[in-house]
Simulated assay, not measured.
Amino acid sequence: MLEGIHHAAIICSDYRVSKHFYAGILGLEIIAENYRQARDSYKLDLRLPDGSQIELFSFPDRPPRPSYPEALGLRHLAFRVGNVEQSVAQLASAGVEVEPIRVDEYTGKKFTFFTDPDGLPLELYEI
C-alpha cells in the first residue's frame, strides 16, 4: 500500500532564516515558493535528491510546540547521507552545531543530531 514518504511539513518561526537553513545550508532544491496572502503565510516546497520533499510553512500566530527528547509524537526527522563526517564538516563550516557522531548499536551505522533554527531535532544517518 505505502510506497515511501512523500513529504514532511515543518512550521517555522522566521521564514527567511529557515529558508536559508534548508535551501542554503542543507542544500535542498526549491521546487515552489508561494505567499498565501489570505493566511499571511509562506509555503516553500523543497526537494531532496531522492525525490522526497519538505514543505516549509510560516504562520503568524502559531502556538509554541514543546520539545522534549522523549515527548509523544514525531521524535525527529532523519536524513540519509553518504558520509557523516563530511556532512558534519559542511554543517560546522556554516556555523551549525552538531552533536558528537555516534554508532547505532544495532546496525553499526554512524549518525548524529543537530537542530534547525527553531530547535527541531534533525538527524544525519550514514547509509
Rank of each mutant, 00 (worst) to 15 (best):
G73T: 06
E105D: 12
A78T: 10
L91F: 07
G82N: 13
A78I: 08
R80C: 07
G119L: 05
D116I: 01
E99G: 05
S93F: 00
S87W: 07
R75H: 15
G108Q: 04
G73R: 03
L77I: 15
A71N: 12
Q86H: 12
E99L: 13
A89K: 14
Q90S: 14
Q90E: 15
R75L: 12
V96T: 02
D116V: 02
L91D: 06
L120A: 08
P121N: 09
K110S: 13
Q86K: 14
V98I: 09
D118W: 02
L77Q: 10
R102C: 11
R75N: 15
K110C: 08
L74D: 06
T107P: 04
D104L: 06
Y106A: 14
E70R: 12
E99W: 08
H76K: 08
L77M: 14
D104S: 07
E70N: 14
N83V: 08
V98M: 05
E105T: 12
D116P: 02
L72M: 14
E99Q: 14
L74W: 06
R75W: 10
T112D: 03
L77N: 09
F111I: 01
I101D: 02
L74Q: 10
F114T: 02
D116E: 05
I101S: 05
A92H: 13
K109D: 07
L77R: 08
